[in-house]
Structure formats: C-alpha cells, structure tokens
Amino acid sequence: MSQFLWYALIGAVLLCIGLAGLVIHRHLLRRILALNVMSTGVFLVFVALAKRAGEVPDPVPLAMVLTGLVVSVSATALALVLIVRIQHLHGSAELPGDDA
C-alpha cells in the first residue's frame, strides 16, 4: 500500500470516529473534541494529497490545511465560550432537549 493511501485511509477513519463521537456524546465538550478529531481527519487527507505525486510535496493542500487550522481554532474558541455560557445558564454543559 502506498504511503498516500495509508495516510488518507487513517484520515478517513479519524473522520468516522469523530462523526460517531459527535452523534453519540451529549456533553458539549466531548462533541467539540469529536468535531476536532473530524477536522484532523480531513486535514490528514489533505496532507496525504500533498505527497501524492512525486517526491516534492505539493504546497497548495498544505496551505489549505493551514487555513483550515485557523478556522478550526477560531470555531473551537467560539464553541468553548458558548459552552461556558450554557453551563452558567442551564447548570450542565449539555444542550437542553437533546434526550428527546
């Protein structure tokens, strides 16, 4: 199995683990972590893509991963602020009405 395929496959597996975590868990912190695992999976696929053709890595997917990381950090920060507020308001870091 080529190196590219190997990494891309791991990326896909991470994506699925993250997706499962997002659906299964109720605690918001776990859900945000699950989303981060998902995005790591996607980024790994991108990084694998960069090494796909020849010895010299393709810079474009790597640049995209950098942009994606910035987005991911900002989104996580926003999510954490919201989670803290929910904890204050509802007394637990879970979305109300989620059990239904």
Partner: peptide
Amino acid sequence: AVAAATRYLLVGLLGSMFYLLGVG
C-alpha cells in the same frame, strides 16, 4: 438563544467538514 446558537455552530461545523473533504 445560547443553546440554539451552539446547536447551530455544531451543525455548521459538521457541514463544513463534509464540504471540505469534498474539496480535497
């Protein structure tokens, strides 16, 4: 509306992940 906003964020990020993988 904080809970609604959080749900909106989770859904939005999930959508973005699917979209980004497609771009890749």
